[in-house]
């Protein structure tokens, strides 16, 4: 059992507060992705779990045991680094065996585990090579094999795919997901790539400015963003937002049209809808003037203007529209979301 509990963890570097009081529980064998733009604190949080950085305050527990005072080696973790950190002076075999030798396993067991993980990562023919003789993708595999070989409770990954080219990244994404699911470890995975996060995670924790804004399943994060930031960060193209004014309780006017909405004591809210949740319809209540048409093959992306707000729509690929057209759009009623413009949170 390796549940990770992060309790009120805060970190500052001098005056700069990298993390404000983070609380997060990662369940046993879960694949959790920490997602955010650079500088949001995701790598700092990962390094605090690893023990490479100490938190200014707060506690970290793994498997019910408080570990934030322990050195990395006593935490039952292994880690895959962004630049792989495959030791250049050791062969692939010795790299994978490094943690096993440190744990003083006997040679037979070292052999068994190195071979098993090398086979798992398809690098069994590279065992006698040095890092300098490997491609980026192969180094990546060695780094993962090394992490798996110690049979850790927790694997921590710091942007492990960011140095690979796009095609390889897609391949490794699927492979890593499969291997980690097999391995019964709890995984914490840091990335700034939302596609990676969506495709791999059991749960995504979205971070911004040293806080976790939302931690939920990929679908939940996508469908029900907890905050304006999440909606605009997740999804490509991102969610559309339009200002809404209260007409009466539960009734709001958006760009001249009236919508049923939440009852709120606020007079203004933001109306939000994803670009693909709009239908072309003669009686569509939103009038959008097309400013740019991008035919993308599987669909057409139209950038429009509604009362000087940028508003994107994803349409069927055979839709014929052109710049200057006015579209009548009907939002799917169950996909409309509302945000409070003051605290940016979902209503």
């Amino acid at each position: 059992m390796a549940e990770i509990q992060i309790k009120q963890v805060a970190k500052s570097f001098g005056k700069f507060e990298a993390l404000h009081s983070i609380d997060l529980t990662i369940t046993d064998q879960e694949f959790l992705v920490l997602l955010g733009a650079s500088g949001c604190g995701k790598t700092t949080l990962l390094r605090i779990i690893a023990g490479l950085e100490t938190a200014t305050s707060g506690e970290v527990h793994i498997g019910g045991k408080r570990i934030d005072h322990l050195p990395p080696k006593d935490r039952g973790i292994s880690m895959v680094f962004q630049n792989y950190a495959v030791f250049p002076h050791l062969t692939v075999y010795e790299n994978i065996a490094f943690g096993l030798r440190m744990a003083k396993l006997d040679q037979a067991e070292v052999d068994r585990r190195v071979n098993r993980t090398a086979t798992l990562m398809h690098i069994e023919q590279l065992l006698q090579r040095y890092s300098g003789q490997l491609s980026g993708g192969q180094r990546q595999r060695v780094a993962v094999a090394r992490a798996l070989a110690t049979e850790p409770d927790v694997i921590l990954m710091d942007e492990p795919l960011s140095n690979l080219d796009a095609l390889l990244r897609m391949e490794m994404r699927a492979e890593l997901k499969g291997i980690l699911a097999e391995s019964n470890t709890t995984t914490v995975y840091v990335t700034h790539d939302q596609v990676e996060a969506m495709s791999m995670a059991d749960r995504i924790a979205i971070m911004q400015g040293g806080d976790i804004i939302q931690a939920a399943t990929p679908v939940e994060v996508y469908r029900n963003p907890a905050a304006h930031f999440v909606g605009s960060f997740i999804g490509n193209p991102p969610m559309n937002f339009l200002p809404a004014k209260k007409v009466s309780d539960g009734l709001w006017t958006v760009a001249g049209a009236q919508f049923d909405g939440p009852s709120s004591n606020k007079n203004e809210l933001n109306f939000a809808i994803r670009p693909e949740d709009l239908l072309l319809s003669d009686n569509g209540p939103l009038q959008a003037k097309v400013t740019l048409v991008e035919p993308l093959g599987s669909h057409v992306l139209a950038s429009c203007n509604i009362e000087n707000n940028l508003f994107r729509v994803v349409l069927e690929s055979d839709t014929s529209i052109s710049r200057g057209d006015v579209l009548n759009l009907k939002p799917m009623p169950d996909r409309v979301r509302w945000f409070d413009p003051d605290n940016q949170l979902a209503v």
Binding site: G51, L52, E53, T54, H69, L70, P71, P72
Partner: peptide, 11 residues
């Protein structure tokens, strides 16, 4: 210049 291992833990 590198900063060597940031030995925060167990010192």
């Amino acid at each position: 210049m590198s900063t060597a291992p940031n030995m925060v833990v167990g010192q």
